[in-house]
């Protein structure tokens, strides 16, 4: 990896070292190779959008990083160190949090119970409900999630945008360094999408690395600092937002190439961290 670009991240990894580097990630399901040697670099304070057609392998890549799937080949470097992630706990221990497409909230539990699921605070052996309720409220307030009326209402009673906000808040509660969002706005209306996009921008401003999967290029161009394009399991581009327009991204997604990009430089897959806004 080239280390030329100065790190503009407000917090997080030591300057220069990316937070997460994926090198040659491969994953197959039976006979189908879904990820075919994927490279990707994520930095603190940056929002990276991962785009690609349906079935390109975006969700699979995310699940590999999150430890849901074990990869067949390739390396994962976290803050420059080689790591292997066997399960979601390993990923969480590194500081990786994922907001899944299917949300992964339990409808019958309330907001606090969901936000702390798997990491309940205890006082001795007993659940420390008061402390958890307080922290959940504070986290939501700090993210300016104001539409959730009570943190003690069951998640089933929330709107789509509220549920997504709770899922995101759940992800940032844990001193996480990388938050991954899989299609966070797919099922949302206009104003709810706005809530969630604002939230995503705030995460980047907080110095977190964010990887957001989206189909909606308007959303992508609004929140992302970098855009990575996955096509049929291969990373065909990883570029700064300013280097592309939406038409070339569409070309990359569908054909794997864009004339406008290759015209003014080397193949975009070599992610030489050419950040315009650096």
């Amino acid at each position: 990896m080239t280390q030329t670009a100065s790190d503009t991240a407000p917090a997080g990894a030591p300057s220069g070292t990316p937070l997460l580097q994926l090198e040659g990630i491969r994953k197959r399901f039976g006979a189908v190779e879904v990820l075919r040697g994927v490279d990707l670099t994520l930095r603190s304070g940056q929002v990276t959008a991962l785009v690609g057609d349906n079935g390109a392998g975006k969700s699979t890549l995310i699940k590999a990083v999150a430890g849901i799937y074990t990869i067949d080949d390739g390396r994962m470097l976290w803050e420059g160190r080689h790591v292997t992630v066997h399960n979601p706990k390993d990923a969480a221990a590194l500081g990786i949090e994922v907001v899944y497409q299917d949300l992964a909230l339990a409808d019958n539990l309330d907001v606090v119970q969901n936000m702390f699921l798997g990491r309940e605070r205890r006082r001795g052996l007993l659940l420390d409900e008061d402390s958890m309720e307080k922290s959940a409220g504070e986290t939501l307030a700090s993210l300016q999630v104001t539409t959730v009326r009570s943190v003690r209402q069951p998640v089933a009673s929330l709107s789509g945008g509220q549920r997504q906000s709770v899922a995101v808040a759940k992800a940032v509660m844990w001193n996480s360094k990388l938050v991954i969002l899989d299609e966070p706005t797919a099922a949302l209306g206009v104003s709810q999408t706005r809530q969630v996009l604002d939230l995503v921008k705030r995460l980047g401003e907080r110095g977190l690395a964010v990887l957001i999967v989206s189909h909606n290029l308007n959303d992508v161009f609004e929140v992302a600092d970098r855009i990575a394009v996955l096509r049929l399991g291969e990373m065909v581009a990883d570029v700064a937002r300013g280097d592309v327009d939406s038409q070339s991204v569409v070309e990359l997604m569908t054909t794997g190439r864009s004339d406008r990009l290759t015209a003014d430089g080397p193949a975009p897959t070599s992610s030489a961290a050419s950040r315009e806004d650096a």
């Binding site: 399960n87 979601p88 899944y100 992964a104 909230l105 339990a106 409808d107 539990l109 699921l117 798997g118």
Partner: peptide, 13 residues
């Protein structure tokens, strides 16, 4: 949690 959403519980560890 397991009764409400087993997959969510599993992902939560």
């Amino acid at each position: 949690a397991v009764g409400g959403n087993a997959e969510a519980a599993r992902r939560a560890g």
